[in-house]
Protein backbone atom coordinates (compact mmCIF):
# COMPACT_ATOMS: atom_id res chain seq x y z
CA UNK A 1 0.00 0.00 0.00
CA UNK A 2 1.30 3.46 -0.81
CA UNK A 3 2.23 5.89 1.93
CA UNK A 4 0.72 9.34 2.13
CA UNK A 5 2.12 12.21 4.18
CA UNK A 6 0.40 15.47 4.82
CA UNK A 7 0.27 18.18 7.42
CA UNK A 8 -3.04 18.05 9.28
CA UNK A 9 -3.86 20.81 11.74
CA UNK A 10 -0.17 21.65 12.06
CA UNK A 11 1.11 18.09 12.54
CA UNK A 12 2.84 15.89 10.00
CA UNK A 13 0.72 12.77 9.56
CA UNK A 14 1.66 9.75 7.56
CA UNK A 15 -0.02 6.42 6.85
CA UNK A 16 -0.02 3.47 4.49
CA UNK A 17 -3.37 3.49 2.75
CA UNK A 18 -5.42 1.71 0.14
CA UNK A 19 -5.15 3.95 -2.96
CA UNK A 20 -8.95 4.37 -3.10
CA UNK A 21 -9.04 5.94 0.40
CA UNK A 22 -10.81 9.28 0.37
CA UNK A 23 -9.49 12.19 2.35
CA UNK A 24 -12.53 12.10 4.60
CA UNK A 25 -11.89 8.42 5.36
CA UNK A 26 -8.24 9.14 6.05
CA UNK A 27 -9.16 11.91 8.47
CA UNK A 28 -11.93 10.00 10.22
CA UNK A 29 -10.55 6.48 10.23
CA UNK A 30 -6.78 6.80 10.19
CA UNK A 31 -6.43 9.98 12.24
CA UNK A 32 -9.71 9.63 14.20
CA UNK A 33 -10.51 13.27 13.45
CA UNK A 34 -14.26 12.64 13.45
CA UNK A 35 -15.35 16.27 13.32
CA UNK A 36 -15.42 16.07 9.52
CA UNK A 37 -18.69 14.34 8.64
CA UNK A 38 -20.14 12.34 5.79
CA UNK A 39 -23.72 13.34 5.03
CA UNK A 40 -24.14 12.08 1.49
CA UNK A 41 -22.53 10.03 -1.24
CA UNK A 42 -22.83 12.45 -4.14
CA UNK A 43 -20.79 15.44 -2.97
CA UNK A 44 -23.90 17.54 -2.41
CA UNK A 45 -24.16 18.22 1.32
CA UNK A 46 -20.88 19.82 2.36
CA UNK A 47 -20.68 18.19 5.81
CA UNK A 48 -17.15 17.11 4.91
CA UNK A 49 -15.66 20.48 3.96
CA UNK A 50 -12.04 20.98 5.07
CA UNK A 51 -9.33 23.35 3.88
CA UNK A 52 -6.52 22.10 1.68
CA UNK A 53 -3.74 24.65 1.40
CA UNK A 54 -6.16 27.33 2.55
CA UNK A 55 -9.06 26.54 0.22
CA UNK A 56 -12.36 24.84 1.06
CA UNK A 57 -12.64 21.39 -0.45
CA UNK A 58 -15.14 18.55 -0.04
CA UNK A 59 -13.13 15.78 1.56
CA UNK A 60 -15.58 13.14 0.32
CA UNK A 61 -14.49 13.61 -3.28
CA UNK A 62 -10.79 14.06 -2.68
CA UNK A 63 -8.46 11.09 -2.71
CA UNK A 64 -6.16 11.12 0.30
CA UNK A 65 -3.19 10.37 -1.97
CA UNK A 66 -3.85 13.56 -3.91
CA UNK A 67 -3.17 15.52 -0.71
CA UNK A 68 0.45 14.35 -0.50
CA UNK A 69 2.50 17.21 0.94
CA UNK A 70 -0.55 19.44 1.48
CA UNK A 71 -1.60 21.45 4.48
CA UNK A 72 -5.00 20.26 5.63
CA UNK A 73 -7.07 22.14 8.18
CA UNK A 74 -10.11 20.49 9.75
CA UNK A 75 -12.66 21.81 12.21
CA UNK A 76 -10.55 20.40 15.06
CA UNK A 77 -7.69 22.68 14.09
CA UNK A 78 -9.63 25.89 13.63
CA UNK A 79 -9.59 27.22 17.19
CA UNK A 80 -6.43 28.74 18.58
CA UNK A 81 -6.00 26.51 21.59
CA UNK A 82 -8.90 27.27 23.90
CA UNK A 83 -9.75 30.42 22.03
CA UNK A 84 -12.51 29.80 19.52
CA UNK A 85 -12.20 31.08 15.98
CA UNK A 86 -14.54 34.08 15.50
CA UNK A 87 -16.65 32.03 13.08
CA UNK A 88 -17.09 29.26 15.65
CA UNK A 89 -17.98 31.83 18.27
CA UNK A 90 -20.51 33.47 15.92
CA UNK A 91 -22.27 30.15 15.26
CA UNK A 92 -22.66 29.66 19.01
CA UNK A 93 -23.70 33.23 19.70
CA UNK A 94 -26.33 33.32 16.93
CA UNK A 95 -27.65 29.78 17.37
CA UNK A 96 -26.38 28.83 13.92
CA UNK A 97 -26.59 25.13 14.68
CA UNK A 98 -29.03 22.63 16.06
CA UNK A 99 -28.05 18.99 15.63
CA UNK A 100 -24.49 20.03 14.83
CA UNK A 101 -23.92 17.54 12.04
CA UNK A 102 -23.59 20.03 9.16
CA UNK A 103 -21.86 22.56 11.39
CA UNK A 104 -18.17 21.71 10.86
CA UNK A 105 -18.66 21.90 7.08
CA UNK A 106 -20.66 25.08 7.38
CA UNK A 107 -18.00 26.76 9.50
CA UNK A 108 -15.14 25.68 7.23
CA UNK A 109 -17.09 26.90 4.18
CA UNK A 110 -17.85 30.20 5.91
CA UNK A 111 -14.20 30.84 6.80
CA UNK A 112 -13.25 30.21 3.19
CA UNK A 113 -16.04 32.51 2.05
CA UNK A 114 -14.58 35.35 4.10
CA UNK A 115 -11.17 34.70 2.59
CA UNK A 116 -12.66 35.01 -0.88
CA UNK A 117 -15.28 37.72 -0.41
CA UNK A 118 -14.12 39.79 2.52
CA UNK A 119 -15.52 40.74 5.90
CA UNK A 120 -18.65 42.57 4.82
CA UNK A 121 -20.99 39.96 3.49
CA UNK A 122 -24.60 40.70 2.61
CA UNK A 123 -27.38 38.16 3.04
CA UNK A 124 -27.69 37.46 -0.67
CA UNK A 125 -24.02 36.67 -1.07
CA UNK A 126 -23.99 34.39 1.96
CA UNK A 127 -27.05 32.49 0.78
CA UNK A 128 -25.66 32.03 -2.72
CA UNK A 129 -22.27 30.95 -1.43
CA UNK A 130 -23.87 28.29 0.77
CA UNK A 131 -25.04 26.47 -2.36
CA UNK A 132 -22.80 23.51 -1.53
CA UNK A 133 -23.85 23.05 2.10
CA UNK A 134 -27.09 21.54 3.30
CA UNK A 135 -28.64 22.03 6.72
CA UNK A 136 -31.92 20.34 7.62
CA UNK A 137 -32.40 21.89 11.09
CA UNK A 138 -31.98 25.64 11.11
CA UNK A 139 -33.80 26.82 7.99
CA UNK A 140 -30.51 28.72 7.39
CA UNK A 141 -31.80 31.93 9.05
CA UNK A 142 -29.35 31.83 11.95
CA UNK A 143 -26.52 30.37 9.88
CA UNK A 144 -26.73 33.40 7.61
CA UNK A 145 -26.74 35.70 10.64
CA UNK A 146 -23.83 33.84 12.20
CA UNK A 147 -21.71 34.00 9.06
CA UNK A 148 -22.30 37.74 8.63
CA UNK A 149 -21.30 38.35 12.26
CA UNK A 150 -18.37 35.93 12.15
CA UNK A 151 -17.08 37.58 8.99
CA UNK A 152 -17.16 41.00 10.63
CA UNK A 153 -15.38 39.69 13.71
CA UNK A 154 -12.69 38.04 11.61
CA UNK A 155 -11.52 41.46 10.46
CA UNK A 156 -9.81 41.93 13.82
CA UNK A 157 -7.91 38.65 13.56
CA UNK A 158 -4.21 38.50 12.79
CA UNK A 159 -3.88 38.13 9.03
CA UNK A 160 -2.12 34.77 9.08
CA UNK A 161 -4.79 33.04 11.16
CA UNK A 162 -7.66 34.58 9.23
CA UNK A 163 -6.27 33.25 6.00
CA UNK A 164 -6.32 29.65 7.13
Amino acid sequence: MPTVTMNVNGRQRSADIDPRTLLVQFLRENLRLTGTHVGCDTSQCGACVVHIDGEAVKACTTLALSCEGSNVLTIEGLANGNELHPMQEAFREHHGLQCGFCTPGMIMTAVDLVRRKGNNLDEKTIREELEGNLCRCTGYHNIVKAIAAGARNMSSMPQSKAAE
Binding site: R28, L33, T34, G35, T36, H37, V38, T74, I75, E76, L78, A79, L84, Q88, F91, R92, L97, G100, F101, T103, P104, I107
Partner: peptide, 14 residues
Protein backbone atom coordinates in the same frame (compact mmCIF):
# COMPACT_ATOMS: atom_id res chain seq x y z
CA UNK B 1 -22.60 23.98 21.15
CA UNK B 2 -18.96 24.02 22.14
CA UNK B 3 -18.40 20.40 21.22
CA UNK B 4 -20.24 20.71 17.93
CA UNK B 5 -18.42 23.81 16.70
CA UNK B 6 -15.04 22.32 17.59
CA UNK B 7 -15.68 18.97 15.90
CA UNK B 8 -15.94 17.10 19.19
CA UNK B 9 -19.49 15.87 18.90
CA UNK B 10 -19.81 12.13 19.31
CA UNK B 11 -22.18 10.65 16.78
CA UNK B 12 -22.65 6.93 16.25
CA UNK B 13 -20.35 6.85 13.23
CA UNK B 14 -17.63 8.38 15.42
Amino acid sequence: DHRFITGKGRYVDD
